[in-house]
Design a protein around this nucleic acid. Structure first.
Lengths: 197, 197
DNA sequence: GTCTATACTGAGATAGAC
DNA sequence: GTCTATCTCAGTATAGAC
């Protein structure tokens, strides 16, 4: 059946979003999907490659949308730096839109980052996008040393990843959460450089 | 031997700091420590309880120090709110001091939070301390709604956890890293409330 | 090409001898 | 306290049915 693959992906997404990747066994997935154990290795090769495909399928369109919006903002800025609120908005809004249709996917993404999985996939699919956004942020923040800027990027990544996991009860929708995150992060980025460092 | 337990703890700390908890097997630990597999279950009961003890041993003094410093700052403030820079400083400095003596420990702590381990231990050992600090932060931030304040706490936790893991190469010492984190987070907390939310 | 049955290795956990 | 042997379950691999 052509949809054996689909059934596996759907079941895996559901389970991983809920319990995390490490806690989800292939035997749980095949039971939930109603397929045979070996079919996972036939269609994907390994547990990790299953996750890889799960992430890539949906991350690719999100990343395309991100770049599209950033390009638009860059054009509006006409050569000058894009305000960091807008850079962050371009990065987070496509994720929020994906979240309304596919709430599980965002949680899977959070899990991937938070469990430190798939460094190869992150590298390959996200690093180019991330680099574009980091470059855009940098233009708006010339007052920071290279080192301090890099650390603020790390703070941002940590806050974003933890927020996406959303283990705490969701009050309000994902859009509200992101609006608040943008306010918080923008202020953090705009803060004056740390004294004497 | 009385130090079988110690040898296990030391080997486990080393390995978990480097590879993470999930990636570290009990068989790796016993090989590195030069002890028998069953001795782990004799001394600790399970892999999880081993981690539990690993964390608790060092987290307890750090948490005591945190409260001590916060109490001092609160006394200095004489009933008024403690500036959030100082609250964050009271929370992070004892960790930084522990890091200079025991650099592995901080990474283990980061792993625990980032891998989502030991919710029970976090709850028991850290929640009381965290609640004190959250209360102290709240006093200095009356302009935020309860919901927005809670989210900013989440952003802070994410940024802290990711920073502690320090998977990126350490430029500068831990103290510098923390000074920068405080500047970033303080500005984020002080940002005006998100419009219309 | 697709799926089933079954076996292999390594994980954490446990019982019982010493 | 310590060690050996063993249990269950994980991810993985493959041979062979359709």
């Amino acid at each position: 059946m052509i949809d054996t693959k689909q059934k596996i992906l759907d079941a895996a997404e559901q389970l991983i979003a809920g319990q995390g990747y490490a806690a989800t066994s292939l035997r749980q997935i095949i039971t939930s999907a109603g397929v045979n154990l070996a079919s996972i290795h036939y269609h994907f090769g390994s547990k990790e490659e299953l996750l890889d495909e799960l992430v890539r399928r949906k991350a690719v369109p999100v990343n395309e949308k991100r770049l599209e919006i950033l390009d638009r903002y860059a054009a509006e800025a006409g050569g000058g730096p894009v305000p960091i609120e807008k850079v962050l908005d371009a990065f987070l809004t496509p994720m929020a839109e994906a979240a309304t249709r596919q709430p599980q996917f965002v949680r899977v993404m959070g899990r991937v980052i938070v469990e430190g999985l798939l460094p190869a996939v992150i590298q390959k699919n996200f690093q180019p996008v991330l680099n574009r956004f980091i470059g855009a942020l940098r233009e708006g923040l010339p007052h920071l040393s290279a080192s301090e800027f890099q650390w603020r990027i790390q703070f941002m990544i940590g806050a974003m990843a933890h927020t996406m996991c959303g283990t705490i009860e969701q009050d309000g929708d994902f859009g509200t959460r992101i609006a608040r995150l943008i306010v918080f992060l923008s202020a953090g980025f705009r803060a004056p450089a740390t004294e004497g460092k």
